[in-house]
Every structure is written in structure tokens, then in C-alpha cells.
Amino acid sequence: MRITINGTPRDVAATTLAGALAEADLTGRIATALNGSFVPAALRETTPLRDGDAIEALAPMQGG
């Protein structure tokens, strides 16, 4: 199915949020949101994906 990860369209075989992150090599200390809502790390394995979903995977960054 076709989803977007951090704004970039991508075809994935995965059917869960955790699977899509693994396909995109998004590992380490990140936080995720699906279609604008926060998804805790503990729920990524059981969060299903649908065609057109938008994932945000955010990491620690410099800030003021």
C-alpha cells in the first residue's frame, strides 16, 4: 500500500506502524504519530495501516 512517511510517499508491504518504520529503517529514539495523532511506542506493533496513511517519525533535535 502507499503511505507517506515524514512527508515522502512510499510503497510498503508492512501492515502495521512498526512494520513500516522497520522498512524505512527508522529505528532508535523516535516518537510516532499517525494521521496527526500520537501513537505510543508500545502500540506500534498493533497499530494497523491503511492506504493513504501519513506517518510522522520524529527524533531529538536542537531547539531553543
Partner: peptide
């Protein structure tokens, strides 16, 4: 103070 941004390789 710190922030969150899309992971592009430097976050870790």
C-alpha cells in the same frame, strides 16, 4: 531546551 523534528539521520 530541545525539540523534535523529522528523523533525517542526526537525531540519535
Amino acid at each position: 531546551t530541545v525539540s523534535l523534528r523529522r528523523e533525517a539521520g542526526g537525531g540519535q
